[in-house]
């Protein structure tokens, strides 16, 4: 995209004032995306309840254009990882993420999704979804209050505002690659680590 498009300098004639606005491609692209982020209906644990509260009567997420929760990943823009990620669940989460079309964002809501939280030492707990997926915004708390989640969503909007259509990865040749889906073996296995697992278990005394 040429840079001129993003810095237009077209004067609007007087008779068209109020009917025509000149803006940049980036700005209109980001404005439309940030005002209609559709999250996926996807609750993992306790934090999901606060996520629902954020969408319910008092907090009303629709003020940010985000009330259209979609039940299928194929129609959603945002995955709110709202709760403890377990080893048994992580293959499904990665699969859901891969099924979302670009542009897609991930919010790690709460201590568990950000780093394991109170259950971090558990044998079935993944210490943070960022071990598998790229995360855009982390919202701390256990659970974060609905206000905190809304603040996280505003931060996400700020992030969207800063993106440029000429640079976003999903319009680059090749695009984004799918995240390999972890496998449940004797313990959870990340296919990206297969070689390493083989090497390490071979030498182990």
């Amino acid at each position: 995209m040429s840079d001129e498009l993003n810095h237009p300098d077209f004067p609007v004639p007087d008779e068209l004032q109020g009917a025509v606005t000149v803006t940049t491609l980036d700005r209109i692209y980001n404005w439309s995306r940030r005002s209609s982020v559709m999250p996926m209906v996807f609750g993992l644990a306790c934090c999901a309840i606060e996520m629902i509260c954020a969408a319910a009567s008092r907090f009303d997420i629709s003020r940010f254009g985000m009330e259209v929760f979609r039940a299928t990943p194929r129609q959603s823009d945002l995955m709110i990882v709202s709760g403890t990620v377990t080893k048994k669940m992580v293959p499904q989460i990665v699969r859901l993420y891969n099924q979302m079309p670009e542009p897609k964002y991930v919010i790690a809501m709460g201590a568990c999704a950000s780093g394991g939280g109170p259950f971090k030492e558990g044998y079935n707990v993944v210490s943070g979804i960022d071990k598998y997926l790229p995360v855009d915004v982390y919202v701390p708390g256990c659970p974060p209050t609905p206000q905190a989640l809304l603040y996280g969503l505003i931060k996400l909007q700020e992030k969207i505002d800063k993106q440029s259509i000429s640079q976003v990865p999903w319009y680059q040749p090749g695009g984004n690659e799918a995240v390999p889906i972890p496998v449940l073996g004797p313990d959870i296995m990340d296919p990206r680590q297969f070689e390493m697992i083989r090497r390490e278990t071979a030498v182990e005394a």
Partner: peptide, 18 residues
């Protein structure tokens, strides 16, 4: 592995069949 995982000795993920 930078995660809380552990595998038995001599385990080869490539030959593992779930």
């Amino acid at each position: 592995f930078n995660k809380n995982v552990r595998y038995p000795k001599g385990f080869d993920p490539r030959s593992f069949k779930s």
